[in-house]
Design a binder for these strands. Structure first.
Length: 272
DNA sequence: ATAAACGCCTGGCGGC
DNA sequence: TGCCGCCAGGCGTTTA
């Protein structure tokens, strides 16, 4: 389940491999991956050259000559690089072929991933990117900003941190880690978060996500930035998916439950 | 307006 | 061994 650190890792991998290449052809084998018209998507990409690559929230933003290609990995999306002579894999849904006779394949078992082509210079001002909140390392992400945005929320803080319109980039795994590090009960209503709590959350978010970025993300299940490339942060997880089920601070059994429909791990003794 | 529920998808798992 | 039902979960859409 790629979250910000995994998305950054994939973006860096793409930078190394595809910058400077020119798109010769595009094949779409599962239409629902594409936001908008499939034929326009293909037409808009052909002949464009890969310029720069960045991220916005969990979106990968690939700037081309006149367009921007945006990609969301959702649950299991990943990119493979092949030679066009290699037959399409079962879960390869979009294949972009370059003029140098290499290609890039969007592979997604669950077919939840999304791609779209938008005008280059307005890409951040258009849906879906325009709806995103602050990046976790944005200097404008202050305790005041966070508390203001949580004030009207009656959902659990765990759920509010997954709301991409407030802070963008946090997913289910890092959410649990951030709240554990902040000693905050994931079930607490978002509107009970104090400025001090918010300060804690922001600091821990930066610490955890920065460290995860350094370690190449978390490899759980199927995340890979390219074939054979795996992150290492899974070894650093304190609570989420922990095998022994014990709190690393107090040793008590962790609570495994659902919050807002998402699998949630926390320590009821250490998180208040 | 907010929030809960549903839909999108497939592979892996437990149970029989 | 095989079939069935259930689960995972990001996020857009639908319903309450």
């Amino acid at each position: 389940m790629p979250e910000k650190p995994e998305v950054i890792t994939v973006s860096k991998t793409l930078e190394k491999i595809i910058i400077g290449k020119t798109i010769k052809d595009v094949d779409v084998y599962w239409d629902n991956i594409i936001i908008g018209n499939k034929n326009d998507f293909i037409k808009d990409l052909k002949g464009e050259k890969i310029d720069t690559i960045t991220t916005r929230g969990k979106w990968i933003v690939i700037f081309l000559t006149t367009k921007a290609l945006i990609c969301h990995l959702r649950m299991e999306g990943k990119f493979f690089f092949r030679n066009p002579s290699v037959p399409k894999g079962k879960h390869d849904h979009v294949i972009i072929t370059f003029t140098d006779d290499t290609d890039m394949r969007f592979n997604d078992v669950r077919k939840f991933g999304k791609m779209a082509v938008l005008p280059k210079h307005e890409v951040f001002k258009l849906k879906p990117l325009v709806d995103l909140g602050l990046e976790y390392n944005d200097k404008n992400l202050t305790p005041t900003y966070l508390v203001e945005n949580l004030q009207k929320k009656k959902v659990p803080i765990k759920t509010a941190l997954l709301d991409q319109s407030i802070i963008t980039g946090i997913g289910n795994i890092y959410d649990d880690e951030i709240l554990f590090a902040s000693h905050i009960d994931p079930l607490r209503k978002a509107n009970t978060i104090s400025l001090e709590d918010a300060d804690n959350i922001i600091k821990n978010t930066k610490l955890i996500l920065d460290k995860a970025v350094t370690m190449g993300g978390t490899t759980i299940k199927s995340f890979t930035s390219a074939e054979g490339v795996h992150g290492l942060f899974q070894n650093e997880l304190s609570v989420h998916g922990k095998k022994d089920g014990l709190c690393p601070l107090c040793g008590e059994p962790l609570v495994v439950t659902k919050v807002g429909g998402r699998g949630t791990y926390y320590c009821s003794k250490c998180q208040k």
